[in-house]
Design a protein around this nucleic acid. Structure first.
Lengths: 246, 246
DNA sequence: CGATGCTATTTTGTCTACAATCCGTCACGG
DNA sequence: CCGTGACGGATTGTAGACAAAATAGCATCG
């Protein structure tokens, strides 16, 4: 059946299975990861309906696991499940996005403190190396998707070395939505991407000083650029932003 | 089928369905709420296995909706779903609980700011009234469950008047786990409960001053008493705390 | 006596079938 | 011409049956 079900690889960072870790990932989980990837990559757009049978046919499974997966995706705030009407990709309003950035700021501060406290020197060095490795994707000529993947990957590793599954899970649900909104940044081809990489570099440097207060400021600087741009576009375009998600 | 499926009423506060709001709550959601209630109230204890057929028989439904419900509960970090081995109630370690309190503190600060900004005067008065109404449950002779319900109810209303579904959903997942840990407070029958009510009263007063900084301090004071007690018990008893969850 | 491998039972994972509900369409009447 | 209500197709909700895997118990062997 599931030759079409190749594991995502990017989202996996936030999927912590604390104990068992059996070799075979449950099909429902795989479908959920795949659906969230498809939504964030633009295969489904905000407001789109997701039909169970369509997903089942596309992935070569039956509707049972698909329904379980939809519950997972709903819990991650990417879809809404309305009784007898099915699943629909959420339409985030300007207020939603503002609140998500609020949450991100507060939770990122926690992550920064934990990383400073708990990450090893080797891990912080590896983090800095990853920042450099992903830096090329900040090239304005590259598609937004690469920048998105890079940020998601860096964030995921940062959560990992913070050594708190609960913090990682909580903030993971939030940043997934935030980075999804980064798709609207297609509309602005400014030097924003280069600035973003510079803030990541600064964060990597500050983390190695083990200064919690400075780390909090540095990690919030990372999101500041994108936050301003994303909110600006939302304010200008209103609900028309959804056309940018194709 | 579902005469046994009476709606919980307490958890409902965190279950936001943004648009549709059809009259009939999906069975899977009802089962999930019921399972989470059962776990927190001690029907299932940490480490207990939850068999699908048992749940299905007990609630008078088939295994399909139960499986969907288990995915929801797993996303709320109350159970772990291990492939081919089923669902098991999570065993929170001391580290887990510490991290959850960290998260709570950070997120409660956000809630305090939002409540100060967004709640109406009438809502803040109603909040103060609810604090007084629930005050009797702080009576040391009452069971811990009542104190737990009271705190959960007050928290839920506070999240509601903060007017941010995303913040409410995010912190809801965390405080559910935190208040679950309050069960260990059976072991200490100190004057903790009366102190707790006094911190709630103080929070209600401060919110009405619309002072965000003071509100942050006040809301963190609410959890401080229970946090210290809970962590103390965890440190003293180690894994033996699980015996307190019956 | 203890360890190991086999077998029976239990439990989970998935699929198929059927019932309940919704949505678009069209006929009908005002 | 427009609103209203019924019909049919499509989609979701649930149930039951079957396959796959794990657990427990027991017999066997060292």
């Amino acid at each position: 059946m599931g030759s079409t079900l190749a594991r995502s690889g990017i989202m996996t960072l936030f999927a912590r299975r604390i104990v068992g870790a059996s070799r075979s990932t449950p099909v429902a989980d795989q479908i959920a990861q795949r659906l969230m990837r498809d939504i964030i990559r633009g295969h489904y757009r905000p407001g789109d309906r997701i039909r169970e049978q369509e997903v089942a046919d596309r992935l070569g499974v039956s509707r049972g696991p698909v329904r379980e997966a939809l519950q997972i995706v709903e819990q991650n705030s990417l879809i809404e499940n309305v009784p007898w009407k099915g699943a629909r990709v959420v339409l985030l309003t300007l207020n939603d996005v503002e609140d998500l950035f609020l949450l991100t700021a507060a939770l990122m501060a926690v992550v920064a403190r934990l990383a400073v406290q708990r990450a090893t020197d080797a891990e912080l060095e590896k983090f800095a190396a990853r920042v450099e490795a992903h830096a090329p994707s900040a090239d304005p000529s590259r598609p937004t998707q690469e920048q998105l993947n890079a940020a998601f990957g860096l964030g995921g590793y940062l959560f990992e070395i913070s050594r708190s599954p609960h913090v990682a899970a909580t903030i993971g649900r939030v940043v997934r939505l935030v980075y999804w909104q980064h798709r609207v940044l297609n509309a602005v081809d400014a030097k924003w991407r280069a600035d973003a990489v510079e803030t990541w570099r600064e964060l990597a440097r500050v983390l190695q000083t083990r200064d919690a207060a400075r780390a909090e400021r540095a990690i919030n600087a990372v999101d500041r650029h994108s936050r301003l741009q994303v909110l600006k576009i939302h304010r200008e375009l209103g609900t028309a932003v959804y056309r940018l998600f194709g």
